[in-house]
Write a protein that binds this DNA or RNA. Sequence first.
DNA 1: TATGACATGTAATCTGTTACATGATTAG
DNA 2: CTAATCATGTAACAGATTACATGTCATA
Lengths: 187, 187
Amino acid sequence: MKIPSLGYALLGLLHGKPSSGYDLRKIFSSTSMRTYSDSPGAIYPALKRLQKQGLIVGKVEEGSGLRRRQIFRISARGIAELKKWITAPVTPEDVAAGASLVMLRFAFSETVAGPSATLALLRSLEAALTPQLAALRTEFESLKKIAPTSGRLAFECGLRGTETFLHWTQSAITTYEQLAAKRGGTV
Amino acid sequence: MKIPSLGYALLGLLHGKPSSGYDLRKIFSSTSMRTYSDSPGAIYPALKRLQKQGLIVGKVEEGSGLRRRQIFRISARGIAELKKWITAPVTPEDVAAGASLVMLRFAFSETVAGPSATLALLRSLEAALTPQLAALRTEFESLKKIAPTSGRLAFECGLRGTETFLHWTQSAITTYEQLAAKRGGTV
DNA sequence: TATGACATGTAATCTGTTACATGATTAG
DNA sequence: CTAATCATGTAACAGATTACATGTCATA
């Protein structure tokens, strides 16, 4: 069972709230999830695929007149698939591909898999990010001598972005550890 | 004439140095340009398309035995197309789509279009990035109250990344302004 | 002489983009 | 009544992924 990133985005949103295709399109076009296409040609076929895979269930609303409006909700299998995706360890490939997919997993992790799974995800991310950053620094050292100014600066941009990402990860870990301590303390 | 991002990456690399498909694949797989696929199923068809569009020219090497090895070099039209792409103003959509495409343009800008075009690109980037960051901050303020911890932190990650990107842009502008002053001073 | 790196390509499949099409409901 | 918005979809096309296929050259 292979699911493209749009599929996971839809599953995560439907886990939060059952919605129609139109609702989901509005979320993509109006919020910071603009990275995902809001075109009907992407979303409706994607929903159809997820339904065929048994990960979501659609039900046509009947109450409000003749207006056909189909509300989708996530199924038990869909939740299981989503949880599996979120709790998988973060690989070097994941971080090399950029932050966005990992952040999508993280954004859903607390409500789908709970705070302890979220903390595990963050620790896995830190473990993947640390050697990546070291490798980038090494590559930068050897590049510094030969590349033109713009090439060197472009690399530095990626380097700074990765540093920021790692710092964010560490501060998020601290946040979740404090939350865990508080929960532990009140038991 | 529409060219996908892989096409521009290939054009930029060929502008730097005439290369075979295999050479280009090695660059993608071994350097920090891993974001682009190194699969033959992507690169060879892309090269064929660029050649059909008259943007690159391929010539089969004859010197070294029977080993067929085709070297591609960029054509005058290809250089014009590349320059047009690099020097176009940075739109809000460009920055919303993420840093990678803009950075690809920047990485090639100095050798393809010269230092003054590079500085113009950076200023255009700063102009697009500044309102985008303000919009993200506004959205964050309204999100802070309602979202769960993980959703809030995920948004904050994007925010910090954009801040870092803007800071980098400003420091790069300074670098190029100093270069320009030095060149101007020695004339 | 067999293995692995060099070098190029094709075919099936999947997904997303673009553009179009349909019809219901609401506001002016 | 008509225009805009709500709501859903389809069809043609482009591009990437994956897997396969082919053959050369160097070296152990």
